[in-house]
Amino acid sequence: MAERNMTRRRLGQRLALQLACAASYLPATRSRAQAVDVMGLRFPSPVGIAAGFDRCGRLGRRAARLGFGFTEVGSCTAAELFEMRPPNAGGLALVGLNLSLDPTRSTAELCADLTLAWAQADYLMLNLISPLSAPLLAEERRARLIELLRALRNRAHALNSCGNRRVPLAVKLRSLPGQVPMALADALLELGFDGLLAAHDPGPPATAERYYGWQDDDQQLLACRQIEQLHQLCDGALALMSVGGVQTAAHLQARLAAGARLVQVHSALLREGPFIAQRLLG
């Protein structure tokens, strides 16, 4: 049964991506979104597509034609980075690359991955919520994690200093009620990262029950309180992003009011169709 459900989800996601790609070739409707400046970049809209939807960058920059300001490609392994095609040129959406942090690989190898990704992305996201990265979050490996984050931040800084453009570096962390990652956020501040993406969903499987559970006002309020806590700590020095449970324009505005600069969607895009960003933006 579990395997059958997984197959259905994969087929549904593949169909949703195909629909989004097809819709991106339709005449673009005028968006009500206002561009936002975050991490030194101008995003055409504060609404973006979370990693996992467009794993290989098929939609890419054309996401702007659907009202999205950005799309996050991946998560990407080292092998996938070598096979990645440069983001398409059509449209204005920014493209981020979501990088898996495999603790079995050396710091030098992971820095090489970042270097390859830097040349292809508008921003980079280090993914610390994937099962692959889970061992790095163990308390006994905290020193290793901080060492790795420092090395990756230093590598990004060196590339930005020598190149003709600046690619911001952010980290994706799980943020749940009673488990807001304050200590890691503080470490990111000290290390000089550009952004933090708070993921408010506990992770797979993405069931229908969990999706509709986000329509509860109290659950939305909890996510906003997590963003408020992080916002008070970061005080603008770290750009905050939020992903998980956003389904309506009211949800979007509440996350932005709580302190998120950018908001990503995933399940809503799968379930509500390719024009969800236009509905969220009103």
Rank of each mutant, 00 (worst) to 15 (best):
R4A: 14
R8W: 09
R9H: 03
R9P: 00
G12H: 05
L15R: 14
A16T: 10
L19F: 05
A20P: 05
C21P: 00
S24P: 01
S31M: 07
R32M: 10
Q34P: 00
Q34M: 03
A35H: 03
F43V: 14
I49V: 15
A51N: 07
C56R: 14
G69M: 12
F82E: 14
F82C: 09
A93I: 07
L97I: 12
S100I: 15
W118A: 00
A119S: 13
A121T: 09
D122R: 06
D122E: 07
I129R: 08
P131K: 08
S133T: 08
L136C: 03
L136K: 08
R141A: 05
R144L: 01
L145I: 12
L145A: 10
R150S: 05
L152T: 14
S161H: 10
P168R: 04
K172I: 04
L189A: 04
E190W: 02
P202T: 11
P205I: 06
Y211P: 05
G213W: 00
D216C: 10
D218E: 11
Q220K: 10
E228M: 08
E228P: 05
L230E: 06
G236Q: 12
M241P: 09
G244T: 12
G245D: 08
G245F: 11
V246E: 06
A250M: 09
L256T: 10
R261D: 09
S267G: 02
S267A: 02
Q278P: 03
G282T: 09
